[in-house]
């Protein structure tokens, strides 16, 4: 006799099945995504890499509810009061310049109609977590790009989302600041263990941050392969870089990706 043999050990948070996105165009319709299928487990940090223009951002926008898909299904957790199913950290412009740091972090909570006092407390807690408490009343133009991305991360986490969607959040930062922010993201993530889907074009970033790396093909994008990252947490970047498995993984991912980048350039 077995007790619920089909019950999964870990819950799936994101399930994407046969997702296709076609943009109607005057001449020929443009297929951005073709039959994308994957799943992300609860508490998993999943990276998504692919050549530029492969539809990574389109996929993320569909998950965030900013775009509709043409066919296929997306299953996300149910919406619960006081929480968002997904929260997004965008690339580039990710803060609203007319709001202070505090107001930016409160923004999601304000739209969720969280009472003023409660949202203030929740926002301050997350501003403290990203180390911006002295800048709570500053406006985005007074901050560096790295600080603005920390504001954006705080805003996302303040909504206590089931899933954190990150769209190349560190792409506009210089190398050193990117390394620092990756450290910080990992530190914060250790505390919450949110489910994360992290879009990036950087192999190094994907290996360093993620539990699993999904590789997308050139346009029209689909999931070409996936690789499980074997390193333990909390991770030490220097130790990872010296680990021979890092080189093997990096080389393998680049082999797969290089083929797609070249194929994408011929289009």
């Amino acid at each position: 006799m077995t007790l619920s043999p089909t019950l999964p050990q870990v819950q799936t948070r994101i399930t994407v099945t046969g997702l296709t996105k076609v943009y109607p165009q005057p001449r020929a319709p443009l297929t951005a995504l073709r039959d994308v299928t994957f799943a992300v487990r609860e508490g998993e940090f999943c990276a998504l890499i692919g050549p530029s223009g492969c539809g990574k951002t389109t996929l993320l926008h569909i998950l965030a509810g900013l775009t509709t898909s043409t066919s296929g299904t997306v299953t996300l957790p149910e919406r619960r009061p006081g929480q968002l199913p997904t929260a997004v950290v965008f690339q580039g412009i990710s803060t609203l310049p007319w709001f202070t740091v505090q107001q930016n972090v409160e923004y999601g909570l304000r739209l969720m109609s969280v009472p003023r006092r409660a949202r203030r407390e929740r926002a301050l807690q997350h501003i403290r977590q990203v180390g911006l408490l002295p800048f709570a009343d500053a406006y985005p133009h007074q901050l560096s790009e790295g600080m603005r991305q920390r504001v954006s991360i705080a805003r996302a986490l303040a909504t206590d989302p089931d899933i954190l969607l990150m769209d190349e959040p560190f792409a506009n930062l210089d190398e050193q600041n990117r390394l620092l922010l990756q450290d910080e993201l990992l530190r914060i993530w250790q505390e919450h263990r949110k489910t994360v889907l992290f879009v990036t074009h950087s192999l190094d970033e994907a290996i360093r941050l993620a539990d699993r790396v999904l590789v997308m093909s050139a346009s029209p994008g689909h999931i070409k392969t996936e690789v499980v990252v074997p390193f333990d947490r909390p991770r030490d970047y220097r130790a990872i870089r010296q680990d021979p498995r890092y080189g093997t993984m990096s080389a393998y991912l680049w082999d797969v990706l290089r083929e797609e980048v070249l194929r994408g350039r011929q289009v």
Partner: peptide, 23 residues
Amino acid sequence: AYFNIARAYGARPLGIFTTIAFP
């Protein structure tokens, strides 16, 4: 990008009006 931020956090038309378009 500003409108995307608002919509990603669930802003309805009135919210977009008051928190994005007007300011």
